[in-house]
């Protein structure tokens, strides 16, 4: 996945609360292979078209709530979106986003469409043209993954010995957890 560092781009705006993942990508497209390209499915039934070349989306409260479908992230990423700024996100959506190099910034930022924003992940701030920077919080682990564009599984496999040790100890500690 593509690492995320600093991004400067005009912002697209979809300022509605509770845009769930069914609205980001309707269920009927989820059977498509990723190789089909998911960008054309983005907001398919919402009648919303993002301005061409949009890489930053400003959205409303609780963006990406609902279904766990990672296709919602594929649709955004394949449509060229690298960062979504919203007051809050669905938890599963935000996790899926980080797995695909899509940065979710939890911030209330009232800027009109077309404003050129700079999203600076190392500094954890969004800068308005000539304006003050807006700090945002991000989990340290998620930040590191986004900066490096690294596969989680590789990282986890470095802990293979600990996993094996846990597995063995757990068998004795929780015999009832086995499949009966």
């Amino acid at each position: 996945m593509t690492p995320f560092t600093v991004l400067t781009a005009p912002v697209a705006v979809l300022d509605r609360a509770n845009i769930d993942t069914d609205q980001i990508i309707p269920a009927r497209f989820l059977r498509k292979p990723r190789s089909a390209g998911y960008g054309g499915f983005l907001f398919a039934d919402l009648g919303v078209r993002l301005p061409a070349g949009s890489a930053i989306l400003r959205a409303g409260e609780n963006f990406g709530c609902g279904s766990s479908r990672e296709g919602a992230v594929y649709a955004l990423v394949d449509a060229g979106i690298r960062c979504v700024i919203a007051p809050g996100f669905g938890d599963i959506f935000a996790g899926n986003a980080a797995q695909n190099g899509l940065l979710t910034v939890a911030l209330s930022l009232d800027v009109p469409e077309g404003t050129v924003l700079t999203v600076d992940l190392p500094a954890q701030e969004v800068r308005l043209p000539g304006g003050t920077p807006h700090r945002f919080a991000i989990d340290a682990f998620r930040k590191q993954r986004l900066l490096e564009g690294r596969d989680d599984i590789d990282l986890t496999l470095a802990h293979a010995a600990e996993i094996a040790a846990f597995e063995a100890a757990d068998r004795a500690a929780r015999p009832w957890a086995a499949i009966g």
């Binding site: 766990s68 996790g95 599984i153 986890t156 496999l157």
Partner: peptide, 22 residues
């Protein structure tokens, strides 16, 4: 709890998952 496709791959490969304590 529900997980996304990348996490499905992660659990399949490792039987574990990175999770932030809610």
């Amino acid at each position: 709890f529900g997980i996304g496709a990348s996490e499905v791959a992660h659990v399949l490969a490792t039987q574990t998952l990175w999770q932030r304590r809610p």
